[in-house]
Simulated scan of single mutants.
Amino acid sequence: MNSLQPTTDEAAIACYESCGFRREGVLRDARRFEDDYRTLVQMSVLEAEWRATSARRSARR
Rank of each mutant, 00 (worst) to 15 (best):
R38Q: 15
W50A: 13
Q42A: 14
T8Y: 04
A48I: 04
V41Y: 06
Q5Y: 13
D9S: 12
F21S: 00
A11P: 07
G20T: 03
A59R: 15
S58G: 07
V26E: 15
E10Y: 12
V45D: 01
A52Q: 13
T39E: 04
T8W: 04
W50E: 07
D29S: 15
D36I: 07
M1C: 09
R61E: 14
A14E: 07
E10K: 13
R32S: 03
F21W: 02
M1I: 10
W50N: 10
S44P: 02
E49G: 15
R38F: 15
C15P: 00
A48G: 09
A48K: 12
F21Q: 00
R60N: 08
L40H: 12
L40S: 08
A52V: 00
M43G: 11
A12C: 07
T8K: 07
A55D: 12
V45I: 11
T39P: 05
Y37E: 05
T7S: 05
S3Y: 12
R22C: 11
N2F: 11
A59Y: 03
D36V: 11
G20E: 03
G20C: 06
Y37P: 02
R56P: 00
Q42E: 06
M43A: 06
A30P: 00
R60W: 12
E34H: 08
A14Q: 09
R61H: 08
M43L: 13
N2M: 09
F21P: 00
Y16Q: 03
Y37V: 05
R23F: 01
L27Y: 05
F33H: 13
E34K: 11
A48S: 14
Y16C: 10
G20S: 06
R22M: 10
L4V: 13
A55W: 04
N2T: 09
T8Q: 08
Q42H: 10
Y37T: 08
S3T: 10
S54E: 11
Q42D: 05
R38K: 15
C19V: 00
Q5R: 10
Y16S: 04
T53F: 01
A52T: 03
Y16V: 01
L27F: 15
L4A: 08
S3N: 11
W50I: 02
S18L: 02
D35F: 01
V26C: 13
A11Y: 07
A55N: 12
R23Q: 14
M43V: 07
Q5W: 06
D35Y: 02
R31P: 00
S18R: 15
Q42S: 14
S58R: 15
Y16N: 08
S18E: 04
A59W: 02
N2G: 03
I13N: 01
R31G: 07
R57H: 10
T7Y: 06
A52M: 01
A55M: 13
R38D: 09
R56M: 08
Y16W: 14
R57T: 05
P6M: 12
S3Q: 11
T8N: 10
L46K: 02
V45N: 02
I13Q: 07
T53N: 13
A52E: 14
